[in-house]
Simulated scan of single mutants.
Amino acid sequence: MSILSYLEESRRVIAASESHPGVQAVDGAVALIIEALAAGKALLVCGNGGSASDAMHITGELVGRFLKERKALNCICLSSNASVLTAWSNDYSFETVFSRQVEAYGQAGGVVLGLSTSGNSANIIKAFETAHALGMKTIGLTGEGGGAMAAHSDVLVDVPSRSTPLIQQVHIVLYHYICEHVEAAMLGR
């Protein structure tokens, strides 16, 4: 595939996203995050592989800054603590590595944002189950249809594609939108 073909395919997925109901749900995700942060509750973010990097990116934008100078926002990346990830996975289970951290950091009224291009990441599903047991809300950022995460997401933002790299490209656009709108709403609070 040439670069022009790849760019055209990328444009096609972005264009399809414009009217996709799952992508339109992004404003619902923004509202949940603002509500939690305004109440002093944390946004917990997790993902595996490239989505773990995206989880760190989101956290960096919200703890640091996106576009505006402001106070730090209460956002924790569950994918970034190597000691927790490796100790818990080695001694117990990789499937529960995020749910264990939700148990540690989660509070009723908080939010867990999970990124998975397939929507079938068992450790994110377990994290969502733990979040619901604690009275937290969940946001799934996935590929087309949401996979198994769809049933566990209070807000599902699914990208109309099954291609991991193309889904991740749209995820970047979506979470930058989320960061911009959350930051604007929290500015001055």
Rank of each mutant, 00 (worst) to 15 (best):
L7I: 14
E9V: 11
S10C: 08
S10F: 07
V13P: 02
S17E: 07
S17P: 04
S19V: 06
V23G: 01
V23W: 00
A38Y: 11
G40N: 02
K41G: 06
L43W: 07
L44D: 00
G47A: 04
N48H: 08
G49V: 04
S51F: 01
A52F: 02
D54H: 02
M56E: 09
H57E: 05
H57R: 03
H57T: 06
E61N: 06
L62A: 03
F66L: 13
E69C: 11
R70H: 13
K71G: 15
L73S: 06
I76R: 08
L78G: 09
S80N: 09
L85N: 03
F94Q: 08
E95Y: 12
S99V: 08
R100S: 10
R100W: 08
V102H: 10
G106W: 03
G119D: 03
N120V: 01
N120R: 03
S121C: 02
I125P: 00
K126E: 15
E129T: 15
T130A: 15
A131V: 15
A133F: 12
A133H: 12
A133D: 15
T138L: 12
L141N: 02
G143N: 01
E144H: 04
G146F: 03
G146M: 05
G147I: 02
A148P: 11
H152Y: 09
S153F: 07
L156K: 02
S161V: 03
R162F: 05
L166Q: 08
I167F: 09
Q169E: 15
H171Q: 06
I172C: 06
V173S: 11
L174R: 02
H176Y: 11
Y177I: 05
C179A: 13
E180G: 11
H181P: 14
E183R: 11
A185C: 13
